[in-house]
Design a protein around this nucleic acid. Structure first.
Lengths: 228, 228
DNA sequence: CTATGAACTATTGTCTACAATAGATAGTCG
DNA sequence: CGACTATCTATTGTAGACAATAGTTCATAG
């Protein structure tokens, strides 16, 4: 009974995961056309499952498909980054309101472990894994709400945020500036969550969000160049 | 240049729309299996576009697909209704915060027209069109934010709410009780929006949401019966 | 009579091939 | 010399067929 999802990776899932990784890794440029036949050769699959995978990615907001014109990798403007950040904040707010005080202590453990991992990464200056651990941390905070749709929506937003970072559109300089301060803010957040005070957590989140927006402002100006 | 999307309906979009309509109209029962070949005959298309349409509906949360076991119409528990309602409220909050005071007067006109339509429907006791107008009203409030991702997320939630109503899981008795009170609450909402006071709108929305939850409570008990 | 196993059927997963369209290129006319 | 049109090619949209699997039914043994 220990086997869970070992079976049936399904070419559609496999292809979606592979293309998603390529996009988030920056191997596919912004606005680049995704030629179906080329991807089938690259992935060693046929077009029907590939097309289904593209539909999934389209719904996830990572690619844009226009009828009879094929799919392209999503192009992000500052407006898009703004949308992603505000939506994230709104979803986190709901999660805190529903999840604090904590009703699922085991999920709190996930957050604690992720935070510990973040501290280790900050000490080792391992920025790549720090990002990963940071996302696990936020995801486990969201999980406190016990709200499946919220988790799914948040995962989608997180993914698009990863895309922003891959495009260097979001807070790169700030995030890489002081790793321990970054982790420290998350520790504060977790402590407030453990204390069971939703209002305090929301206030801290608001600060977090404000920082993100000011980072966005400092990035402004790179937009018009991309809008040809 | 007046033609917009007259061309290229794309069998995928057509099929997704058709199946979506069937689900929301209650023609497909809760948990019912969606046999691909049967749907292809019914819709007069072939399996590849149908499968792509099913992927779209899966991402929308209207159907559930398990590998090698096909797709079934989504089954909604009270927990699902709770999730849908809370998510809707969270998204509306964001929309109000970003959209009030109003920056796009033309979109406000959409809301005004939808409200007028709601009043006409209430007078005529045309409940079907009242629901439609109500959704246009809420959608145009969301549009005040000028936030594409928010609009998409909200549209998905609205759709699932329609599914709830099709399943008689949400506030049927309440909604049908006093049509003019229902419309009146929306008029109050719009007046507060026009006044440009976000806090007042949010307070009114909270009342609205509370009513929904109490309705949900009154529906509780129908759940265990469905969970076999 | 019940439980277990194997064969069978219905259904999903995948592939190859064909049809249709949008963009590009070259040729011709003004 | 420039602009417009027609053909042509690359790519997407769709169809039908084959392969693989999960659920079911029937037979058999305990």
């Amino acid at each position: 009974m220990t086997e869970q999802r070992l079976r049936s990776p399904s070419l559609v899932q496999l292809a979606a995961d592979a293309i998603r990784r390529m996009i988030l890794a920056g191997e596919l440029a912004e606005g680049e056309r995704l030629i179906e036949e080329r991807l089938t050769e690259q992935l060693g699959i046929s077009r029907p499952p590939l097309r289904e995978a593209l539909r999934v990615l389209e719904q996830e907001g990572l690619i844009v498909t226009r009828p009879r014109r094929g799919s392209t990798v999503a192009t992000l403007t500052d407006q898009d980054v703004f949308e992603i950040l505000t939506l994230r904040t709104a979803l986190e707010r709901l999660a805190i309101e529903l999840g604090v005080p904590v009703r699922f202590p085991d999920r709190l453990k996930d957050a604690q472990e992720a935070l510990a991992e973040m501290e280790r990464c900050a000490d080792a200056e391992d920025r790549g894994n720090l990002v990963q651990a940071g996302y696990r941390f936020h995801a486990s905070l969201i999980a406190l709400a016990g709200h499946r749709r919220l988790e799914e929506a948040y995962a989608s937003v997180q993914q698009q945020l990863l895309l922003c970072m891959a495009r260097n559109l979001y807070a790169r300089e700030h995030f890489y500036e002081d790793l321990h301060e970054h982790v420290g803010r998350h520790r504060t957040l977790l402590e407030l969550v453990e204390a069971g005070d939703p209002a305090a957590v929301l206030a801290e989140l608001a600060v977090h969000g404000e920082r993100s927006f000011s980072d966005l402002q400092s990035n402004a100006g790179s937009r018009s160049a991309r809008d040809l």
